[in-house]
């Protein structure tokens, strides 16, 4: 099980700079808006910029040194890389390929079965019992959702 860790202080530093840039970009963009359209995003971004500045000062060490932080603390970004990638890529494939091209019923069943099976195989947990459970539950769940949205709420699904 491969995990991905990142230095917390480094992550905070990068993110604080990114947030300050984001605030700058949003403030620049608000110049194009009408007076009434600009008030809210302008004021909210000003507040956000202040909080981001405090975050920036803290993460770049001015206050942290006083608080005695070692700066070596690791942060677990991803606990199990293979399962994360399978689920993440699976969700993207479901949205962009399966759901839109194959439709809800086929796409959802394929998505559920493939993602659960691949995760179980990568973890060496695959068994006849688990595969049967995944197959049955995926089929039942998908048909239940289809019935609910299509026939109870009368919503057209792809």
């Amino acid at each position: 099980m491969k995990s991905i860790n990142i230095n917390r202080r480094l992550a905070d530093k990068i993110l604080s700079v990114f947030l300050l840039f984001l605030c700058g970009a949003i403030l620049w963009e608000t110049r194009k808006f009408s007076e009434y359209g600009a008030y809210f995003p302008y004021i909210v971004t000003l507040f956000l910029a202040v909080f981001s500045l405090v975050y920036f000062i803290k993460s770049w060490g001015v206050l942290l040194r006083k608080m005695g932080s070692s700066g070596k603390e690791q942060l677990e970004l991803i606990q199990d890389l293979s399962s994360f990638l399978v689920s993440f890529v699976g969700v993207l494939a479901y949205i962009f390929i399966l759901f839109s091209l194959l439709g809800f019923l086929v796409g959802s069943i394929l998505f559920c079965i493939s993602v659960t099976s691949v995760i179980q195989i990568t973890r060496s947990e695959a068994s006849f019992k688990l595969t049967t459970l995944s197959l049955l539950s995926s089929g039942m769940f998908t048909f239940m959702m289809y019935y609910l949205f299509r026939h109870v709420f009368h919503i057209h699904l792809p």
Partner: peptide, 17 residues
């Protein structure tokens, strides 16, 4: 992982609907 895919399906179909 079974729960995860069920939540993903509900999230996608619920948002689309």
């Amino acid at each position: 992982e079974i729960l995860a895919v069920f939540i993903a399906v509900m999230s996608v179909v619920g948002t689309f609907a």
